[in-house]
Write a protein that binds this DNA or RNA. Structure first.
Length: 414
RNA sequence: GCGGGUGUAGCUCAGUUGGUUAGAGCACCAGAUUGUGAUUCUGGGGGUCGUGGGUUCAAUUCCCAUCACUCGCCCCA
């Protein structure tokens, strides 16, 4: 039994759950297409270096969460922990710099070796949008707007809030990081163990610590806006101005820091308090340095990823699939007629189920369980008259319809 | 990776202060109804009480380990 369990943190997607996923994906794909995003798909694994180089050697994702293995050819490969690195790699290997700007939508499984929790799995799924080749803040605005509209279309906008911050340009960030490290180093003894660790790896994170002692120290820490360059300040003002013009509400959160090294300027998260510790449903930011770091022609980029499982937990139950028609042939002679009729119905666009086994009562029960809206019964009596008995499951009415008219009669009702 | 909680039928859960054959509802199967579903009635199948070890005359119950789930931390979608 134990060996028949799915691997920890992985999940089977059975019809009801997959229907929710599909709703998220289809909604996102549709809204993204309204904004001009084209769907792409990249491999779910890459050479390990693709992630190690782009995400940063100190990020948690790289240091402890990657599914890395050696393949039969001796290559070290990694199941993708996120989508952006793969898209950036595809951009470079495919020579797509000729076609800028590019707007991509993608979705699929991601893998991180983490301890599972609600809304947090080892294999999980994301929707993702990226804009490549636009350095202007209009891209930031558009990327946030498409996220907001997707949440709207999913009916979960009122369960989320948009948190926004700027990480500034490299110059701003380096300056701030330096004073921050100085400040926290002076208080190092009072910091929590986690934050001592963060001091070397990602000092900005200390600002967001949940430890009470840390918070007291953070309260008097230098503030980032004081270290933003004029250009970075203006850039961010353009972004917030655009969101204001679109009527997209946001909360400025100076403590919002992204964990991956490649982010700069705009950082944002759509968060919810409905999923316990996992608040972010969509999160992203600008990564102007990423493609250059990977060895491509320096190209600005911005995008976000949304957790499908997390969104799927927030949305209302999706509408059920179309109700089928049940074709029930009784007896050998009817079998062939039923088979042909079912085929005709399917070609006419009806979802159709064939009742193969058991007496009529049993087949009717199965049809009812499938939530069929009608049953078409064909037995010896019907064959002799060249008709089928069509029974409506909702009102219990039934009538005999000439075989050749069955498809048309159902089309009228539908 | 760290700390807490929980594992009894397919699902939701009772129960056993350690003692003969472990229960309910829902679901499933069959019959009432060999050509008519949902309702109803009757019957049935299904559990190594997560797994392994220990204590005991006796363990589903107590102890330890392990696995899974879950909540929080780290981090993140």
């Amino acid at each position: 039994m134990a060996s028949l369990q799915p691997v920890r943190g992985t999940h089977d997607l059975l019809p009801d759950e997959l229907r929710r996923h599909r709703k998220v994906i289809e909604t996102a794909r549709h809204v993204a297409s309204l904004y001009g995003f084209d769907q792409v798909a990249t491999p779910i694994f890459e050479f390990t270096d693709v992630f190690r180089r782009t995400l940063g050697d100190t990020s948690d994702v790289v240091t402890k969460e990657m599914y890395t293995f050696t393949d039969r050819g001796g290559e070290e490969v990694t199941l993708r922990p996120e989508a952006t690195a793969g898209i950036a790699r595809a951009f470079i290997s495919g020579g797509l710099a000729q076609n800028l700007p590019l707007k991509f939508f993608t979705h699929g499984p991601m893998f991180r070796y983490e301890r599972p929790q609600k809304g947090r799995l080892r294999q999980f799924h994301q929707i993702d949008v990226e804009i490549l080749g636009v350095a202007e803040p209009q891209a930031d605005i558009e990327v946030i707007a498409v996220g907001a509209q997707i949440l709207d279309a999913l009916g979960v906008r009122d369960k989320t809030m948009l948190e926004l911050n700027t990480l500034g340009d490299a110059e701003s960030r380096d300056a701030y990081r330096t004073v921050l490290v100085e400040y926290f180093s002076d208080h190092k003894d009072a910091l929590s163990d986690d934050s001592k660790n963060r001091l070397t790896r990602n000092p900005l994170r200390i600002l967001d610590s949940k430890d009470e002692g840390d918070r007291r120290i953070v309260a008097d820490a230098p503030l980032f806006p004081d270290y933003l360059t004029q250009a970075a300040t203006e850039f961010f003002a353009d972004v917030t101005g655009g969101l204001d013009a679109l009527g997209i509400a946001y909360t400025l959160n100076p403590k919002l820091v992204r964990g991956l090294d490649y982010y700069g300027h705009t950082a944002f998260e759509f968060t919810t308090d409905a999923l316990g510790a996992q608040g972010a449903v969509i999160a992203g930011g600008r990564y102007d340095g990423l493609i250059g770091t990977m060895g491509g022609q320096p190209t600005p980029g911005i995008g976000w990823a949304g957790g499908i499982e997390r969104l799927a937990m927030l949305i209302a139950e999706p509408a059920a699939d179309a109700r089928p028609i049940a074709v029930i042939p009784m007896g050998e002679a009817a079998q062939a007629v039923g088979l042909k009729l079912a085929a005709d119905l399917r070609h006419a666009g009806h979802r159709t189920d064939m009742g193969y086994r058991g007496n009529l009562s049993k087949r009717m029960k199965r049809a009812n369980k499938l939530n069929a809206h009608a049953a078409i019964i064909i037995g010896d009596d019907e064959l002799a008259k060249g008709v089928a008995t069509v029974r409506d499951f909702d009102d219990g009415e039934q009538s005999e319809v000439p075989l050749e008219d069955v498809v048309a009669s159902l089309a009228q009702e539908g």
